[in-house]
């Protein structure tokens, strides 16, 4: 799963989203050491200042804590992680419903589709 800078929104915002995704899906497990700014900036091919801003947002989210001696660590707080997971899922759902609406399906019809497809998995 590589970083992708696709649209015209500020790069740090796109990075923030993708980092949140990585944390919530366990790419960086709870309690583990979070990579440094330079490491991630190098991996993403972006300016370190930009990555710094994205990581600052993660701290504001509470997903990551900074310790002077240990650097950055992913939080162990399951409530925070869960809240972010739900928040990301909710945002995706809203996007999905908007797309369904553009196709002419209201929320109820879309939910029915979801249930049908879900049974197949």
């Amino acid at each position: 799963m590589n970083f992708s800078i696709k649209d015209s929104r500020p790069i740090w915002q796109q990075l923030t989203e993708q980092l949140r995704q990585r944390i919530v899906t366990g790419v960086y497990p709870p309690g583990s050491r979070f990579p440094s700014v330079r490491e991630l900036a190098s991996e993403a091919g972006v300016n370190p200042n930009t990555m710094q801003r994205a990581m600052g947002q993660l701290e504001t989210d509470g997903l990551v804590t900074t310790n002077r001696t240990q650097g950055r660590t992913v939080t162990r707080d399951t409530e925070v992680l869960e809240a972010m997971r739900r928040s990301l899922a909710r945002a995706r759902t809203q996007e999905y419903l908007q797309e369904m609406q553009a196709l002419g399906l209201e929320a109820a019809a879309a939910a029915e589709l979801v249930r049908e497809e879900g049974e197949k998995i």
Partner: peptide, 11 residues
């Protein structure tokens, strides 16, 4: 760069 993107909505 961030400011340009936020202000104009473009890259």
């Amino acid at each position: 760069v961030d400011s340009i993107r936020e202000r104009t909505g473009q890259s």
